[in-house]
Amino acid sequence: MAAVLDSVRALFAQDAFTIAVENPGDVVARETLLDRAMGPNRRRKSSEALRRNRVPAEGLALVARDSSGHVIGTVRLWNVEAGISPAGEPVPALLLGPLAVDSAHEGKGIGAALMRAAIAEAKTRDHGAILLVGDAPYYERFGFFADKAQHLVMPGPFERHRFLGLELKDGWLEGAAGLLVASGRKLARAPMRRAA
């Protein structure tokens, strides 16, 4: 991960932001940013059902920081099973989202930098495909297309034309069909104390 992030840092240093792996101290800033960027209904989306009570895929929770170290962008990827292969086996994949950039920093290439860093790190970690729900005109430039997800469905309502896939390994999603299911690690919960 360090090599990928070092090259991103060098590339975007002139724009006064860096890309880094999210740390536990980023939680409040990330959640505040997502609430502002995505609105009050963000937790009702079908994608959220796959993320709920899960931990992002290892090394694939990234933030953009301004020159003062404040979180100004975020992207996370989550382990899912992308339906079943023609051989009847679950197809491991990643679900990207949400991607958000602070409105005061839009137009600086932060979202694109987060996307490129996330895709590069997913490749480095040997993942086969990434899926997302988003605007095709934006995500097609990164290689995401609806035909890669055409036989897959999200849990709950979703807009078919916005359900996109990117194969990191050729043919990874070929023949995959069915419902996306969360497969990542569950969020650890603190043990509950019993009253004496």
Rank of each mutant, 00 (worst) to 15 (best):
T32V: 15
T32M: 14
D35H: 00
A37W: 00
M38N: 10
R44H: 11
K45W: 15
K45I: 14
S46T: 03
S46V: 03
S47A: 15
A49E: 12
R51Y: 04
R51G: 01
R51N: 02
N53E: 14
R54D: 05
V55S: 06
P56N: 02
A57W: 12
E58D: 13
G59I: 10
A61R: 04
L62F: 11
S68P: 00
S68A: 10
H70R: 15
H70P: 07
G73M: 05
T74N: 12
V75S: 03
N79R: 15
I84S: 10
S85R: 08
A87M: 07
E89S: 14
V91E: 12
A93T: 00
A93F: 01
L95H: 00
L95E: 00
G97W: 00
G97F: 02
G97P: 10
S103F: 13
A104Y: 08
G109H: 08
I110H: 02
A112W: 05
L114Q: 07
R116M: 14
A118P: 11
E121N: 09
K123T: 04
T124C: 11
A129T: 07
L131E: 00
L132Q: 04
V133M: 13
Y138W: 09
Y139F: 12
R141A: 13
F144T: 00
H151F: 09
P155F: 01
G156I: 06
G156P: 08
P157N: 09
R160E: 07
H161E: 14
F163T: 03
L168C: 05
D170L: 10
